[in-house]
């Protein structure tokens, strides 16, 4: 108990010396010191002890120490700044690299798309093998030789050879028109009725499965023009319309998203080469049109305003004559062998 009391007095005296007591505590200590000589002596000892330490002269840091500190600080500051700059620089570099990579990838993709549009193979069958029939999507243009469509009418080798051998003169034109629709029953009935009511053509019907009808139509070019013209009002019912020009054995040109007037124009070219060139032009044109943002807008607003996104058709300025200018009787003599495939979505 005494020890604790002595310790308490010692702490009190120290606090008194250091000016850490309140006014009332200071008064009490002064009264205690006045009354008790031993406490007074202890206070004096403490005071002198404190004096001895506090009077020690401060050591001046050597000049090299100050210089060392300054050097160290500036180095550290520079390093810290450098690290900040490096971090910031690394971030900027990364962003630039990502942007550059994105641009390169984008450009490469665009280039590939353009090249693919020009030389890449694509046909309804190929699309079907990739993912089956679908909506009218940005299509690819097939100019690469490939086997003749299995759905195409069976033509005798002699006829085919004759067609191919025709060179710049179109003999019998072999075509396929593949129509994909969600409203199969109505569209098929419409096509069937239309063909039945067209005495200028001959047609056979093949029903190989409940969701598909194949019609083989033989007619003149004029007959084809009339047929397509009659089909035109129903064109908006087709989710996709693909026209294939069969050039010869294993060769064809596919025009996706084909329009009625395009079918007529292709078929009316008086040479096979003319048909091929025009088919390629339309294929490219339709592909670009499908890729245009307007198609997405159209998809959003519905198909009520197709004229909003219709790209004006190119005017041919080359030596290829329009069929309209051909002698009527010559046009009538030419035969068209058209296979119409009406298919519903599964």
């Amino acid at each position: 108990m005494n020890f604790e009391k002595e310790q308490k007095i010692e702490e009190l005296l120290n606090s008194y010396l250091d000016g850490e007591l309140s006014a009332r505590e200071q008064t009490e200590v002064q009264r205690l010191v006045g009354k008790d000589k031993d406490v007074a002596r202890r206070l004096r000892d403490l005071e002198r002890c404190r004096l001895l330490v506090s009077a020690l002269p401060p050591a001046e840091p050597p000049a090299e120490v100050i210089a060392g500190i300054q050097e160290s600080l500036h180095y550290k500051t520079a390093v810290a700044d450098g690290q900040d700059n490096a971090r910031q620089g690394a971030r900027h570099l990364l962003v630039r690299q990502v942007l550059a990579a994105s641009v390169i990838i984008g450009l490469a993709g665009l280039l590939i798309a353009v090249i693919y549009q020009i030389v890449g193979p694509a046909s309804p069958d190929l699309r079907a093998s990739r993912g089956g029939p679908g909506k009218m999507t940005p299509g690819t243009v097939a100019v690469k030789p490939r086997p003749v469509e299995t759905t195409a009418p069976q033509v005798s080798p002699a006829e085919t050879e004759k067609t191919v051998a025709a060179g710049d003169k179109a003999g019998v034109g072999f075509y396929s028109l593949q129509l994909q629709t969600t409203d199969f029953v109505a569209v098929d009935a419409f096509v069937n009725k239309l063909l039945g009511e067209s005495p200028w053509l001959k047609f056979d019907t093949i029903k190989d499965n409940p969701g598909r009808s194949i019609y083989r139509v033989v007619c003149s070019r004029k007959g084809l023009e009339t047929l397509v013209s009659d089909l035109a009002p129903a064109w908006t019912k087709f989710d996709s319309a693909t026209f294939v020009v069969h050039i010869g054995v294993g060769q064809q040109v596919t025009v996706e998203s084909v329009q009625p007037e395009q079918v007529t124009e292709i078929a009316n070219q008086d040479t096979t080469d003319g048909q091929i060139r025009l088919a390629k032009d339309f294929a490219m044109l339709n592909s670009i049109e499908q890729l245009s943002p307007a198609q997405r807008v159209l998809a959003l607003v519905g198909r009520d305003y197709p004229e909003l996104t219709t790209i004006p058709r190119p005017v041919l300025t080359s030596g290829e004559k329009r069929v309209a200018e051909m002698p009527r009787d010559a046009s009538e003599q030419l035969r068209v062998d058209l296979t119409i495939v009406v298919a519903g979505h599964k």
Partner: peptide
Amino acid sequence: DVLRDDKTPTPADVAENRELC
């Protein structure tokens, strides 16, 4: 002198005394 003398030295007295420091 500092610890036992009745006379209290000044800080300067202490600081100037190298041996004491």
